[in-house]
């Protein structure tokens, strides 16, 4: 089975760890502790690729949000096949930061796949593009609204980017 490296990028506290723990262990961390360095997770995802029949093993790099844009100069980000760029729907600054991270990722890892993830959907009634910065609204990239708390769209977010990775890299 093919194994690919996937980065989880975003400001601290947006829910990166909650998203991957929801995916891998179907649970949430019992208390909030900021990720230090990087936590690695393995997850097998199937039904992806051109024909929808392939399987992919993801090694998810849950990165410390403190790095900010300097993550792209760090060896942690090397060799990544894709990324999920995460923001907190209730914190506008984290949504603005998503745009910067997207620019940084594109420059450091050109033509690699990434998707935007707007997390904590459980705190609002429904996805509301008006909450997003204009540059994020107009970005030509997949965007998924998730809730790690309710598991809404979590698998979809990882599946979507896995699919894109396989279509590109084979």
């Amino acid at each position: 089975m093919i194994t690919k490296k996937l980065l989880l990028l975003g400001e601290i506290g947006v829910g990166k760890t909650s998203l991957v723990r929801r995916l891998v262990h179907d649970e949430l961390p019992s208390d909030y502790r900021a990720t230090m360095g990087v936590d690695l997770y393995r997850y097998e995802i199937d039904g992806v690729g051109q024909d929808g029949r392939r399987a992919l093993e993801l090694v998810v790099w849950d990165l410390d949000g403190n790095y900010g844009l300097s993550i792209f100069r760090h060896v942690y980000s090397k060799g990544a096949s894709g990324a999920l760029i995460v923001g907190d729907v209730m914190r506008y600054a984290t949504l603005e930061h998503m745009v910067s991270l997207a620019d940084g990722f594109t420059e450091a890892l050109p033509s690699r796949q990434f998707s935007f993830v707007v997390n904590k959907l459980d705190l609002i009634d429904e996805p509301d593009p008006k909450r997003l910065p204009e540059k994020l609204r107009g970005a030509d990239r997949p965007m998924v609204w998730t809730s790690a708390l309710t598991a809404h769209n979590v698998r979809t977010a990882f599946r979507q980017v896995s699919d894109a990775i396989l279509r590109r890299e084979g």
Binding site: M36, V38, V75
Partner: peptide
């Protein structure tokens, strides 16, 4: 995983600096 290129590049690095990944769980 994914770091093959960076590791192989160490062979040609003049400074013999290691590739370091710190604080990994």
């Amino acid at each position: 995983i994914g770091l093959e290129e960076e590791l192989l590049a160490l062979k040609t690095s003049p400074d013999s600096e290691p590739l370091v990944l710190a604080n990994v769980l």
